[in-house]
Simulated assay, not measured.
Amino acid sequence: MSSLAFTVPGPADTTAAAYELGVGRAVPTTAAVLGFVAVVAGGLALTRSRRGARSWVGIALTLGQVSVIVGALHGANSAGGPGTGNGMVGAVLAVALGVAGTALAVSAVVRSHRAVRFGDRPTP
């Protein structure tokens, strides 16, 4: 006859430590979320650029730049590469999303200025 042994993991279980969301992952994850919000705001500003979307442009520019700066600083100071748990992938994603959000906001500003220059006045 074989016996079954059930073990209960104690407080020193090391497998749960690999999935904690510490400062090394929380900061670039937050920056990536801000970058995603910048992309959404930049897209809304671009689709509404002829009707005046200054608030969306301001949100996209601000959050995009914050995302790029925080992601770049975290990526430069990270101790390891991707997959080490130091947030390198989140930092790279934050930079990419921040640049995309900023580019969309700048495109919206250029489009709105072009519309004003050619006589298409945006309605307030």
Rank of each mutant, 00 (worst) to 15 (best):
S3A: 08
L4Y: 04
A5N: 02
T7F: 13
T7I: 06
V8G: 06
V8Q: 12
V8D: 10
P9C: 08
P11H: 15
A12V: 13
T14M: 12
T15M: 15
A16W: 14
A17C: 03
A17W: 12
A17H: 09
Y19E: 15
E20I: 07
E20F: 12
G24Y: 08
R25P: 05
P28L: 00
T29V: 04
T29N: 13
T30R: 11
T30L: 09
A32T: 13
V33A: 14
V33F: 13
L34A: 15
L34H: 13
F36W: 11
A38P: 10
A38C: 10
V39Y: 02
V39E: 01
V40T: 11
A41S: 15
A41Q: 11
L44E: 12
A45Y: 07
R48M: 11
S49R: 15
S49K: 12
S49T: 10
A53N: 11
S55Q: 15
W56K: 08
W56C: 11
V57H: 07
V57G: 02
V57K: 08
I59R: 15
I59C: 10
A60P: 08
L63C: 09
L63F: 15
L63P: 12
Q65T: 10
Q65I: 03
V66I: 14
V66M: 09
V66S: 03
V70S: 03
V70N: 01
V70A: 12
G71Q: 00
A72R: 04
L73M: 08
H74D: 03
A76Q: 05
A76C: 00
A76K: 06
N77C: 04
S78T: 13
G80T: 09
P82Y: 03
T84E: 07
G87N: 02
A91F: 02
A94N: 01
A94T: 06
A94Q: 03
A94G: 04
V95S: 06
A96T: 12
L97Q: 11
L97C: 07
G98K: 09
G98H: 09
L104V: 03
A105I: 05
V109E: 00
V109R: 01
V109K: 02
V110W: 00
V110C: 05
S112C: 01
H113N: 12
R114L: 11
R114E: 14
R114K: 07
A115I: 02
V116F: 04
V116I: 00
V116P: 02
R117G: 01
G119N: 08
D120I: 04
D120T: 04
R121A: 06
R121I: 06
P122N: 04
